[in-house]
Write a protein that binds this DNA or RNA. Structure first.
Lengths: 209, 209
DNA sequence: GGGAAAACATAGCATTGCTATGTATTATTG
DNA sequence: CAATAATACATAGCAATGCTATGTTTTCCC
């Protein structure tokens, strides 16, 4: 009787537990299926429906979890006196996160985006936008640069590399192409070539790839 | 008796038929399942196993088909007197192909690459490498530029844009970011900024996006 | 023609996501 | 505090999935 009362006490954290378990199963490359997900948790298959409304809801929650973790990683990158260096560190952190959780990264982009997904991704993009604005304020970029546009272009570079490496066509060391790519982009935005190169190489080393 | 003989005559093109049908089902966003694929073709479910060895083999064949079609589209881009303009036209054709068959494009990159997939993708990449070599020969890029590296960097840009647009986070008009991105990349490779910009804008217009 | 090999159809299996139904637990009243 | 409404949960079962086993037909090769 007693232990039943304990076990059966409503536990809203079971939602987070299932998400974590799914993320871990993705990391260990085990197929995430309805029954295999709830097996071992004590919960029944219905838990997925009460908490997520079905498997599709679970994937959506997993996508948001992926963006949340990504945003947390990006938030760890400190703002130094060199905003271009910080932008490179942000990009490196983006790639590092994708390399640490390649399957979760794939899930984040495999289904067509919905409103909720876009909101989760917005925080990631906004992080880059703020970095570009800081670089503008520091006089590294031209005044006519649109921070959002430059951030999107940087995102395209980062996602292109991350996607091509995690899916296999490019080897992991191809991530190093990020340095010349970002340098080219930021120089085109007005930064001094030599100074830009040094900043980016410094920022790149901030993150273990 | 007679019509049976006609119908049952071994037809090796049934393999291509199934691939085409699967590609069309992807385009019309109908779920490609074993039974729905063979329904209407007169073939039974076993055809998928005799020709592809299972559904996974079908997906692999579809990936190769996707790269083959992509290579055919890229081959249509003519080589003019302006190799930088041709490189932009190649990139635009790459994006155009992805926009025309977004689901096929996603299938091409959703599973981890195997040897056969890499061989199919090689032709695509080699197309860009040749373009870079022509630009070097024309004196547009510096002598120390590695054609393969620059081609890979261009591929990362193209795939990043194509992937972010087909999966939803970026709207279709974001493809226009390809112009400044390629300009930045090729200027960093040594091309004259003004001339590069003009070449790329011209090449970009060669393809309907 | 006749035998070997490949292609094919049928039927059935285990597993998938999901729903219907009934039961237990929680919360919300009077 | 008890009675009722609402929610969470377990069980069982359904249609559909990919796949395999088995037997039959067709094609190839001598």
């Amino acid at each position: 009787m007693y232990y039943w009362a304990v076990v059966r006490t409503k536990d809203p954290s079971i939602r987070a537990l299932l998400i974590d378990r799914a993320a871990q199963m993705l990391r260990t490359r085990r197929p995430v299926t309805l029954r295999s997900l709830v097996a071992g948790t004590g919960a029944s298959t219905m838990a997925v429906y009460t908490y997520f409304g079905g498997m599709e809801g679970l994937w959506k929650a997993l996508r948001q979890e992926g963006f949340t973790r990504l945003a947390a990683e990006l938030a760890k990158v400190p703002a130094t006196a060199d905003p271009v260096r910080d932008l490179a560190a942000l990009s490196a952190a983006y790639l590092s996160n994708a390399m640490d959780n390649p399957d979760l990264y794939r899930v984040m982009f495999d289904a067509t985006f919905e409103l909720e997904d876009s909101k989760a991704a917005d925080e990631t993009l906004h992080c880059l936008v703020r970095g570009v604005e800081r670089a503008k304020s520091a006089g590294r970029f031209r005044d006519d640069i649109d921070p959002l546009e430059l951030a999107v272009q940087g995102w395209a570079i980062g996602h292109g590399l991350a996607s091509l490496v995690t899916t296999g066509p490019l080897p992991r060391q191809a991530l190093a192409h990020g340095v010349p790519l970002l340098t080219a982009l930021f120089v085109s935005a007005g930064d001094d070539p030599g100074r830009c190169r040094r900043s980016i190489e410094q920022g790149w080393e901030q993150v273990r790839l």
